[in-house]
Simulated assay, not measured.
Amino acid sequence: MRIIVAITGASGAIYGITLLDQLKLSGIETHLILSPWAAKTITLETRWTPEQVMALASYSYAANDLAAPVASGSFVHQGMIIAPCSMKTLASIALGYSDNLITRAADVTIKERRPLILMTRETPLNAIHLENMLKLARLGVVIMPPVPSFYQHPETIEDLVLQTTGRVLDLLGIENNLVKRWGAIGTGPLFTGSE
């Protein structure tokens, strides 16, 4: 299996990092595209360096490398995730404005009818953001803001990130044990099954 992971400069670089880490643990080939602002956000928000993040991937590319294999529809892969996806990147994809490798790879993923998951990061959302999301959702793109769930009783930020990462893996059909499944936890009247 081969997956493209892109990290943009929006807040939430830890989602892309965790995704890369989990894909590596699963033995899945990954192709990372890191934007210049993503490198800065990684430094500001995490204990990782951009170099350490790139080392998690099987292959990595600069965002301005439009000659990279992932820029072509002939590059076969099983899905692309942009985690996190900035509103600028979202807008570029929605308009078909392939001005860098991230937006070009996303454009190719759409035209080749492969899964594209955008972990959009912004709040509150304005009408422009929502219209761009709706346009892409109508094309089959999965819009997945990293909205945490709390039914699993998270105790740490890592718990929240892992639950969301597991849901992304679910969307790609990748088996994982990161997700605490509804109905398999809890003791309240809304829950069924064992703890």
Score class of each variant (00 low, 15 high):
161 V>F: 10
91 A>G: 11
147 V>R: 13
41 T>P: 01
59 Y>E: 13
162 L>N: 11
82 I>T: 01
172 L>N: 05
156 T>V: 13
145 P>W: 12
61 Y>D: 00
176 N>Q: 03
111 K>Y: 09
189 P>N: 06
60 S>A: 09
66 L>F: 03
42 I>D: 01
129 H>I: 02
121 R>T: 08
170 D>K: 06
132 N>C: 09
8 T>M: 11
37 W>T: 11
66 L>A: 05
127 A>Y: 10
33 I>F: 00
162 L>S: 02
12 G>A: 13
50 P>S: 00
84 P>I: 10
93 I>V: 15
36 P>D: 08
51 E>Q: 14
124 P>I: 13
46 T>A: 11
145 P>V: 09
115 P>T: 06
82 I>F: 02
89 T>N: 02
194 S>D: 08
73 G>N: 07
131 E>L: 12
7 I>W: 03
189 P>R: 15
9 G>F: 08
185 I>G: 04
152 Q>L: 12
85 C>E: 01
67 A>T: 14
118 L>D: 01
58 S>C: 06
135 K>M: 10
79 G>Q: 11
42 I>A: 01
98 S>A: 15
194 S>T: 13
20 L>D: 04
176 N>K: 08
87 M>Y: 05
173 G>N: 07
67 A>P: 01
6 A>W: 03
177 N>I: 07
95 L>A: 14
19 L>Y: 10
132 N>L: 11
8 T>W: 05
134 L>R: 13
158 E>L: 15
40 K>R: 15
136 L>P: 05
4 I>S: 06
83 A>D: 04
22 Q>S: 10
18 T>P: 01
18 T>R: 15
98 S>Q: 14
193 G>F: 06
48 W>I: 02
22 Q>K: 15
49 T>V: 00
136 L>F: 07
23 L>I: 03
33 I>S: 00
159 D>M: 03
110 I>M: 14
71 A>Y: 09
55 A>R: 15
72 S>T: 04
132 N>F: 10
47 R>I: 08
89 T>M: 10
40 K>M: 12
170 D>A: 09
106 A>T: 12
108 V>C: 07
60 S>N: 14
7 I>S: 03
187 T>N: 03
126 N>H: 15
57 A>E: 05
30 T>C: 11
67 A>W: 05
84 P>F: 13
127 A>V: 11
53 V>P: 03
70 V>Q: 08
167 R>G: 06
53 V>E: 06
154 P>M: 15
58 S>H: 12
83 A>N: 09
89 T>R: 10
180 K>C: 02
76 V>M: 14
155 E>C: 12
104 R>H: 09
43 T>L: 13
112 E>Q: 10
9 G>A: 09
122 E>C: 03
16 G>K: 11
193 G>Q: 05
